[in-house]
Design a protein around this nucleic acid. Sequence first.
DNA 1: ATCCAGGCAGATG
DNA 2: CATCTGCATGGA
Length: 268
Amino acid sequence: MESFEIPKTPYFDIGATLECGQVFRFKPIDGGYKINALGHMAEVRDSGDRWIVDSDSSEFFNRYLDFDTDYGFIQREVDDKALLSEAIAFGKGIHILRQDPTEALFSFIISQNNHIPRIKGIIERICDGLGDDMGGYHAFPTVEALASAGESYFASVGAGYRAAYLDRVAKTLVGEDIYEWKNLDTEALRLKLMSLYGIGRKVADCVLLFGFNRFDVFPVDTWIKKVFEEEYPGVPADKMSVLLVKKYGKYAGFVQQWLFYYKREKKV
DNA sequence: ATCCAGGCAGATG
DNA sequence: CATCTGCATGGA
């Protein structure tokens, strides 16, 4: 067990960061949260004027929690004194986590047309069933383990019609080094992701944003559609995404997450 | 009970 | 190119 501390600022809040919908393997504990990511585990606690992070690897979680990005700067850059202003005020403590690309990819296949509490449950059961036992918790499964499970296994843990997607994508990715994909530009990487069975523009954009930390993307789901239905009446999700990337440029991904969290939590 | 969820593939105009 | 439909599941 290792430990490090982070002084509190308005620009990091562990609750908002975890509850904003970008990640699924966490749960509240007394005074904070327990996080599982890949084969790692951390407990983040509020200790008054600082955050205390107890984990199996301070190096991993320093990077994972993204303390190197200047969120205040980005928030001032994109602030439009309108709805986005309110969304930023509400979610200014969100950090975009540096998640593992493979974990993000399979997680967001499960996320499609699904409720967040269910997504969490399905992912937890898959980790418990197929992931390495780390002593007290299970790692996210390897691609090989996912590929060996079979479609009926994914159906048995409640994946529904996505079971076929999980099975086929896992089998497709065996022997493929998706960590090499980070060398592709955003559009080429999007096409690569969308070539996988069960991954369309929205899931691809979530993987780009949360797994590859590309910020020139704007995933458009049912909530974001609600945010922009007046500004872009009748515009389908994929096209709306293109317009919003154009509008917010290299900070589009951050803007998307602030608006998503605000819309979903506040139901405005 | 009915609706709906971080959508997608496949079929059809 | 655009629009339509079926889809598994269970929380709200």
